[in-house]
């Protein structure tokens, strides 16, 4: 089946089998390996991307379902060669250890800040509750998302 999916602003057309998982379309067909595969059973959340701005787990979605939709992966966070607010915050606040959950954590954080520019610590913990960090480094992930929300608010008001 022929599909066209816009990924990080670029339209990609491909002939795919209906059973191709979206995560494999992104990683294998497009070579964007920042989207990871962890549990493969909708539990860990490392395969999360944004579809039209909403986080979804791409191990539990077929590529054909994304036909005509707009996907943002971690590779699409950087803007004009600069790290986005959330990437900068994860860097400054040591929001990662092994880095395996990081792309998904940053995408979920981005979507949260978009919906709720001033999240409480509780809001952040709820938002990332579908994402596992195998290093258990949640403290700094939460701090990083808090900091990114703050810089985003400052950027919006300046």
């Amino acid at each position: 089946m022929n599909i066209t999916v816009t990924v990080n602003g670029t339209a990609h057309t491909a002939d795919v089998e209906p059973r191709l998982l979206l995560v494999d379309f992104i990683r294998t067909n497009l070579g964007l390996t920042g989207t990871h595969i962890g549990c493969d059973t909708t539990s860990c959340g490392v395969c999360t991307v944004l579809i039209d701005g909403t986080p979804v787990k791409t191990c539990t979605m077929f590529a054909v379902q994304a036909n005509g939709r707009s996907v943002t992966t971690v590779e699409g966070l950087k803007q004009n060669g600069e790290l986005s607010a959330i990437q900068q915050a994860f860097r400054e606040h040591h929001g990662l250890q092994c880095g395996f959950c990081t792309p998904a954590m940053m995408l979920v954080g981005t979507a949260l800040i978009e919906e709720n520019p001033d999240p409480t610590e509780d809001d952040i913990r709820w938002a990332i509750s579908g994402n596992l960090c195998r290093c258990t480094g949640y403290m700094n992930i939460v701090k990083s998302i808090e900091a990114a929300a703050e810089t985003t608010r400052e950027g919006a008001s300046s």
């Binding site: 909708t42 959340g45 999360t48 909403t54 986080p55 979804v56 787990k57 539990t60 979605m61 979920v108 709820w126 938002a127 509750s129 579908g130 994402n131």
Partner: peptide, 8 residues
């Protein structure tokens, strides 16, 4: 479920 699963 969890917040991401709830989106779909």
């Amino acid at each position: 479920a969890d917040p991401i699963v709830r989106n779909l």
